[in-house]
Design a protein around this nucleic acid. Sequence first.
DNA 1: AGTGCTATGTATAATGC
DNA 2: TGCATTATACATAGCAC
Lengths: 221, 221
Amino acid sequence: MTRKKVKLAYITDDSARKATFKKRKKGLIKKVEELSILCDIDVCMIICSPYDAQPEVYPSSSGVQRVLARFKNMPEIVQSKKMVNQESFLRNRIAKANEQLEKQREENREKEITRIMFQTLMGAKGLLGLSIVDLKDLRWLIEQKLMNIKMRIERIGGTLAAQNCKPRLMALAAKGKPKSEGESATPVGAVEAARPPRFYASVDGMHRWPQWFMRLINPQE
Amino acid sequence: MTRKKVKLAYITDDSARKATFKKRKKGLIKKVEELSILCDIDVCMIICSPYDAQPEVYPSSSGVQRVLARFKNMPEIVQSKKMVNQESFLRNRIAKANEQLEKQREENREKEITRIMFQTLMGAKGLLGLSIVDLKDLRWLIEQKLMNIKMRIERIGGTLAAQNCKPRLMALAAKGKPKSEGESATPVGAVEAARPPRFYASVDGMHRWPQWFMRLINPQE
DNA sequence: AGTGCTATGTATAATGC
DNA sequence: TGCATTATACATAGCAC
């Protein structure tokens, strides 16, 4: 088990190369992390490999964006003589942390609110807790949007009877949570009872989304 | 000259920190290059420090652009909010995080999709990119929910003419900076053009939500 | 401040399961 | 194939100039 001196060249053996990659990637990320902490340095790294489905990113997607933005702002780095002393370091770090905290909080709150609202709209479950006034709000809101949609359809030129809608959209994104037995009967008459939305699932086990979802996510494509 | 085990924390001594930074930066770049060569991997790294006028970049500016383009071409990354905690790095965390990565990714994807859908409904902005068929889906979906709301209203016993709706709800949750101007006046123009939703803002700068929002968030209260 | 040096902590190549 | 182990190569903290 005598270790050879490492030859700096492409490793031809497939499995050996993969093994080396995994080990070294791990070590590299650790080193980056250490440098970042020990010296309070802004550093980002992206590792694209055929061995990982997703690129390995340090410190995070948003972190990369941040460092990248700083990188692009190079002209303003003229004032590079600013040294980091203990006090400014702590102050800076606290400010940064607070900033991130608030941002994260806001983001989480927004997501949570949105999720709940959407579940309310989709599941018609939370409606039970709403007052008349609240329902007026909601109805007004939805009618506004419905009006927008109708206008959009007319502008395109399509003729559409509501009864003839045959949506191909069958299920929507949501976390399937077992609902209580009590409210299982949703008396919507002709239309199907609202049920907990679920993921699309394809044969390979991956989630699949309607095309218009995908288009919304990646408008450039 | 006995070497201590390095404690993973910010180095308070200025010169020691700088010396460590220089050494480690050099070593880090060497490691990155080795990984890149040994395994033929696309890697890029940016190190922004107060010790260098220009950010240290590997492999080059254009190389960063290339890897970054590749990174951005992976749509899934948009929602990958998983990140290594820069403050408290734990070695084991990588392994655990990788285990939970897929689950987290799925969860984030769901949230993101839901948010986007809701923004589409509320902002009527993404509608421009939708086809007739997509709009049919959306219209059907909304009409379903509108029907539910109407039934709910009737069940309660309220009589409601759509034109008389005077919603107190003016703005809804969305990403964006809270506007600090107190919007005490409620310009309830009958049908107002859809505009980007924003937070409620109160005098103390905190976000404020309609009561029915709050009730949805905290049903127990 | 920026060298260079060495002892020692760490990363990891090779091996076995 | 992946994970654990171990011996070894390598990185680098501390010191001297």
